[in-house]
């Protein structure tokens, strides 16, 4: 590991100030991803600004939304009574991610800031435009089994690794960020980016901005929800494909629907057209299959991930079936 400075702060402003003072500084919370990246010399910040002492761990109802502090632990959110009752999809997605030990360390803000797990990004001997712009994309012609099928570019076909974010994009969450110019709100769907020509940028957070909270509006998706994650082993593996499905069903008719996918894109992939195809229809396998086909429009596979073109819609159908008939 390369040497770095380390400071602790206890307010968002102090943290933003501290990080603004050094060119290559990073916030650190749980450190479950950043420390790995530093050990492998993939990220080499000169300064770490520890934000764990900032009081941002709350999970509470504020008016018609639930507000989750950026430093709330993944396990704390997953186990929160309020979240389980009002946002069960979020709780399910969190429990599908990582391991119990990591969920006990990792924070909500950090979860959003995770870097991709692309094999080429993780190996400094391999080309990767995300790690070092201009080196080329190793995955494009390489071992791309885990890679994206939506929104790719010639520069990058990596996927966003989070489970939690798939639920959050489905639930219309808003990101609250504090920066040198004050606080601002970013719709979750606009938080993460597609790779385009700048795959080195994972999200639209501005320089020195700190995520302070996530806001999720009240919704009717308290019963018919399911987060289905298909992976290469039963636990502690990133999604090959995951689907967050939420239905509001009345008299077997779908009143409202939310659908998002993980393991398919550089950002949490919301399936808005498929949602439209669900609304007003009976909650049946035929409806789900139709929505899944719409969802897959525009998908593009690479050498090793063509199976996602079939596993994707199958997983959507199954997630919707599970949501329609909760255990």
């Amino acid at each position: 590991m390369i040497q770095f400075q380390y400071v602790r702060t206890s307010t968002p402003k102090a943290a933003v100030d501290a990080v603004s003072k050094t060119q290559n500084a990073r916030f650190i919370a749980g450190g479950t991803n950043l420390v790995d990246l530093m050990k492998r010399n993939i990220m080499t910040p000169e300064k770490l600004v520890d934000i764990n002492n900032i009081p941002l761990k709350g999970i509470e109802q504020q008016g018609n939304k639930i507000v989750i502090g950026a430093l709330a632990l993944n396990s704390q959110v997953a186990d929160s009574k309020l979240v389980q009752e009002k946002l069960p999809l979020l709780s399910q997605s969190l429990n599908a991610g990582a391991s119990a030990q990591i969920r006990n360390m990792a924070t909500v803000g950090g979860n959003m800031m995770q870097r991709t797990r692309c094999n080429y990004f993780y190996d400094t001997a391999m080309p990767c435009n995300k790690r070092e712009p201009g080196l080329g994309c190793g995955a494009l012609e390489g071992f791309n089994r885990m890679h994206a099928i939506f929104g790719t570019s010639e520069k990058c076909i990596a996927v966003h690794p989070s489970d939690m974010c798939i639920a959050l994009v489905a639930l219309d969450a808003t990101v609250v960020a504090a920066g040198p110019k004050g606080e601002r709100r970013i719709p979750f769907a606009e938080f993460h980016r597609l790779p385009g020509d700048t795959p080195e940028k994972d999200n639209n957070l501005m320089e020195n901005e700190l995520i302070t909270a996530i806001e999720i509006p009240d919704n009717a998706f308290t019963r018919n929800v399911h987060y289905l994650k298909i992976r290469d082993r039963a636990s502690y593996a990133f999604a090959v494909i995951s689907v967050a499905a939420a239905l509001h069903i009345e008299n077997n008719t779908i009143k409202d629907a939310r659908l998002a996918m993980g393991g398919v894109s550089h950002k949490p992939w919301r399936l808005s057209e498929a949602e439209k195809a669900l609304i007003g229809k009976p909650a049946s396998e035929k409806t789900f299959r139709n929505a899944a086909e719409i969802a897959m429009q525009g998908a593009k596979a690479y050498k090793h991930n063509a199976f996602k073109l079939k596993l994707g819609p199958n997983t959507i159908v199954q997630a919707l079936k599970n949501a329609a008939e909760p255990v």
Binding site: Y120, M126, A234, Y236
Partner: peptide, 19 residues
Amino acid sequence: FGRYVTKDFAEYHVPVHAD
């Protein structure tokens, strides 16, 4: 590259308890 791409416990999957 003649180089392994699955070479840690995140990418080389040994069964976990749930398996």
